[in-house]
């Protein structure tokens, strides 16, 4: 049976950088969602609710 790998321990600096990267990614995804919503409204306008089902 193979010995399990020891758990990875990040240095405080690495933890800080990872948190910053995660925050930036979350912010980018949030902005992306808002932009897609805005583009949908801009392209479809009032017709957004009037489409054949």
């Amino acid at each position: 049976m193979a010995r399990p790998n020891p758990p990875v321990r990040l240095t405080p600096e690495e933890q800080k950088r990872r948190r910053q990267r995660s925050m930036a990614l979350a912010l980018a995804l949030g902005i992306f969602c808002i932009l897609l919503f805005a583009v949908t409204l801009a392209k479809l306008g009032p017709g957004i609710m009037q489409r054949p089902l």
Binding site: T11, E14, R17, R18, R21
Partner: peptide, 17 residues
């Protein structure tokens, strides 16, 4: 050893990207 970069872990911050 504590201050050495961990293998397989990204060392870049947001400004580097």
């Amino acid at each position: 050893v504590e201050s050495l970069p961990t293998a397989g872990v990204s060392q870049g911050d947001v400004s580097d990207f």
